[in-house]
Every structure is written in structure tokens, then in C-alpha cells.
């Protein structure tokens, strides 16, 4: 009798979990949608802090997972500040001091330009399927969109967030809402896509909000004004020499 009960319970559980697709497959589909070999974008960061709000404009060049270059265009006080990411290294150039400084260690956890995004967030691998394993745990309707609920667990200790809970738009394969947790299980950050746009045959976030839960303020809004995907970028763009140009 007990054996029969166990078998029935096993079959029941199997049937329940089998009704959701494989989480890792969903992650791959997200990467197929969002990950481009290269990208050039112009965006705005609206930072809402306790002292008020301010807007920064930046232009970014990205190639693969390991190379990225950003230049701040506005406001005038920050214009000319540039950042270069190569593999796991990050350099910042400041035109006023005419200095290039490498950021490492605990500094990577600091807020980038007072926003709710840290340097560590910026350094993160673009292809999420490479750094997380996922399990689909539910399906919900969120803001009139059908979503999968995924629980992601980091494959290595090197990632900034050990686990994530993500709502994935079933049709557009975009992470509409996300909660990022530390190793202790503490909620550290939330993100939400507020507006999407079509770029070629891909869906992309147009406007999203990052919120560092440990910080007061209303979060940082990130708005993509222009974006070009899979474009040729000259190798010299990703060099330290480009920082001082």
C-alpha cells in the first residue's frame, strides 16, 4: 500500500512540474531575443534620489559579453567621463583630472553615478543563461501580459546576485519584473520594464526602472533613446587609448 502511495505521489508531482517548460530553455530564448553580437545605444538615466532628480545621457558601445565602452554626454559636469570594460576589468576616465583609474574589489559594488545600478551590475555577463540555472515555478498574468515565473540560481559564486525571481513575458521573452537576492536570501535590487520597443525582429526594453532596495529614493529610470544592434564597431573603441580621446 505504502509503495503504491509513493508511486502515485511521484507521478502526481511529475505531472505538476511537467506542465511548465524547462526554465533553462526559457533563459536561452531570452538570450536569443536580447543578446546581440554588438550594440550601440544612446540612453538616459533619470536618477531619483533623496536630494531630487537628475538626468544623465550616455552613449554605449558593446561587443559580446566582454567589451563595452560608455561615454557620458550630459549634464555638462559629467560630460566626457568615460568607462571601459574589458573582461572583468573596468577603467574610468575623468577629463577634469585627465586620469584613468581602474575600479576593482569592493569599489565595484558602489553605485554608478549615484544611480541604483552598481558597477558590478554593469560588469555582469550579458547572456544570462551562461551564469544562471533556472526553474519555472509558476505562470501569472502581470500587467495584462502572460508570464512565466522563473527562479534563477547562480552557477558560480562570482555573480553579484545569488538568486533571482523573474517574470518573463511569454510572447516577447523579456524579463518584465525581477527581484534580485543576495546569498543570505536578502532582497537587494528590483527591476521592472515599463515600456518595450521592437528592434528588427527582437523585443527590447525601452524604459525600465532599477531600485536598490537598500537605498532610499525612488530608483533609477533607464530610457533607451536610440539603439543599433549587430553593427560593426572598430576594435580601437575598446582600448584604453579611446578613453583619453
Amino acid at each position: 500500500m505504502r509503495i503504491l502511495q509513493t508511486i502515485m505521489l511521484f507521478l502526481f508531482c511529475n505531472s505538476v512540474f511537467a506542465k511548465y517548460p524547462d526554465g533553462n530553455m526559457i533563459l536561452k530564448q531570452i538570450d536569443e531575443n536580447m543578446y546581440a553580437k554588438s550594440m550601440i545605444s544612446t540612453s538616459q538615466m533619470l536618477i531619483h534620489s533623496r536630494r531630487g532628480s537628475r538626468t544623465m545621457t550616455l552613449k554605449s558601445w558593446t561587443e559580446g559579453n566582454t567589451k563595452s565602452f560608455s561615454e557620458y554626454l550630459a549634464p555638462p559636469k559629467d560630460a566626457g567621463t568615460k568607462m571601459l570594460k574589458l573582461d572583468d576589468k573596468l577603467w574610468i576616465y575623468n577629463p577634469a583630472a585627465d586620469r584613468t583609474i581602474q575600479i576593482s574589489g569592493h569599489m565595484l559594488r558602489q553605485s554608478m553615478m549615484g544611480s541604483d545600478i552598481s558597477y558590478e551590475d554593469m560588469m555582469e555577463e550579458n547572456e544570462i543563461s551562461k551564469i544562471y540555472s533556472a526553474e519555472t515555478v509558476n505562470e501569472v498574468v502581470y500587467k495584462e501580459r502572460n508570464c512565466w515565473v522563473l527562479e534563477l540560481t547562480a552557477n558560480t559564486d562570482a555573480t553579484a546576485y545569488h538568486t533571482r525571481k523573474v517574470l518573463i513575458d511569454k510572447e516577447k521573452m523579456l524579463p518584465l519584473k525581477e527581484e534580485r537576492y543576495g546569498k543570505s536570501g536578502k532582497l537587494l535590487k528590483t527591476t521592472e520594464i515599463l515600456e518595450v520597443m521592437k528592434v528588427g525582429n527582437r523585443w527590447y526594453p525601452k524604459r525600465m526602472i532599477f531600485k536598490d532596495v537598500l537605498k532610499q529614493g525612488e530608483g533609477t529610470e533607464f530610457v533607451i533613446d536610440e539603439i543599433q544592434l549587430d553593427v560593426e564597431i572598430h576594435e580601437s573603441r575598446f582600448s584604453k587609448a579611446a578613453l583619453r580621446k
Partner: peptide
């Protein structure tokens, strides 16, 4: 030497 930090408003700042 260069001091590197964040301004009162959070922007990156450096000064020699």
C-alpha cells in the same frame, strides 16, 4: 596623487 570618489549627487569625481 588622485582622489577618486562620488560627488554629493553621486557622479564620479576625480581630483589631483
Amino acid at each position: 596623487v588622485t582622489m577618486f570618489g562620488s560627488t554629493m549627487y553621486g557622479s564620479i569625481t576625480m581630483q589631483n
